[in-house]
Write a protein that binds this DNA or RNA. Sequence first.
DNA 1: CTTTACAAACCGCCCAGTCGGTTTTATAAA
DNA 2: TTTATAAAACCGACTGGGCGGTTTGTAAAG
Lengths: 212, 212
Amino acid sequence: MDNASRSERSRNAALEAAIAIIARDGPGRLTLDAIARESGLSKGGVMHQFRTKEAVLKALLDRQMAHFEEFATSTMAKVSATSANPNLATQLATVREAATSPNSAALALVAAMVENPSLMALPREREMERMAAIREEATDPDLAMLRWAGAMGLLLSSLFGMSPLSKDEHQRLFARLLDDAQWTGLERPGAKRTAKSGAPSAAKAATPRKRA
Amino acid sequence: MDNASRSERSRNAALEAAIAIIARDGPGRLTLDAIARESGLSKGGVMHQFRTKEAVLKALLDRQMAHFEEFATSTMAKVSATSANPNLATQLATVREAATSPNSAALALVAAMVENPSLMALPREREMERMAAIREEATDPDLAMLRWAGAMGLLLSSLFGMSPLSKDEHQRLFARLLDDAQWTGLERPGAKRTAKSGAPSAAKAATPRKRA
DNA sequence: CTTTACAAACCGCCCAGTCGGTTTTATAAA
DNA sequence: TTTATAAAACCGACTGGGCGGTTTGTAAAG
């Protein structure tokens, strides 16, 4: 077999093993030896592909992000013509996808958070960009944020195994979140026109977290 | 100082230290030695109060759950007279409280999930009871669930540090979630028993959870 | 022959848990 | 109160295993 293909295969095997371990035993049980055992590789093999454990986590995050990024751009292309708020529609669909897929990206996120919280900087940044886009296109930014938050709540609660909802109910709720017609009744244009001006300061300066 | 008080003090110190460590360094850095260092106790002292690390996590969970349970029953008493859906109102307020409080219970949950996922069985059970109560009292159960999910999304996104929202925006969104008037426009009574016959009887079950 | 992919033994550190010992509190008899 | 004894709280050195990472060796690819 080709060398590149061999590496590719091994890297994939290791990452799949990592996800399986996190999903089955929890992020705390994710060790290099466990990855080696689960993937069928030797520890040396794993360490050849990833020089450090942090590199494994990083690769895992990159991979999941790439997957959902692709999904997002794909659905974005589909809805951008028809929807009035394509960014929101895309994000809701993507979160639903993440909630449906068994190898959830969120698992990788949790594992990264445990091992090295700073790894979450990049995903966090991306997320913030998306939310800014959602707010900017919305006639009622707060409502858009609440719909987004609802999707995240569904995703994370099912991730934590705290969802009393069946698959069908889950899908129904996501469908309702996605259906603009269901939310037009109570839009409050602008950021609630009280005395304060409606200037939506979308992007706030992200305070960088420091590790000790 | 008498023995009971001494124990109480030490246990408290250890648990406070644990929360501080999780919040500052992440769940992966929570070790018994770290707890001893942070709390000022010796390791032996910590081990005398908690026979194992899992016992520490369990105590942490119990403590946080008790705190929010108390908060919940307190607010439940306040709103049960005025609100048509007191369970939802209470849960939303409680989640807001959890999101606001620095020593979030969610941190304890994450730590428990890392160390031993099975520890989450009890909190999960409680959560499911609450959600069942919310659904039962709602004229539009799905919408109620979505409001709850929105609150959870806000809480968890801020926990993961992925919230681009300022404190004020956060509070505003929670306030909107709590304001029934903002959501009456689009209720769809379907799915559950509709019972749209005049009087809004609004489930007067005094106790949030009744299962024996 | 050189480089790359993998294997497996190995190393040092960290961490949960143990253990013998010391100090503080509780009980109670004198 | 004093004294004797037990029990509980606390201490800190120690241990055994697990973990991240290294090293040495081998086979396949180029």
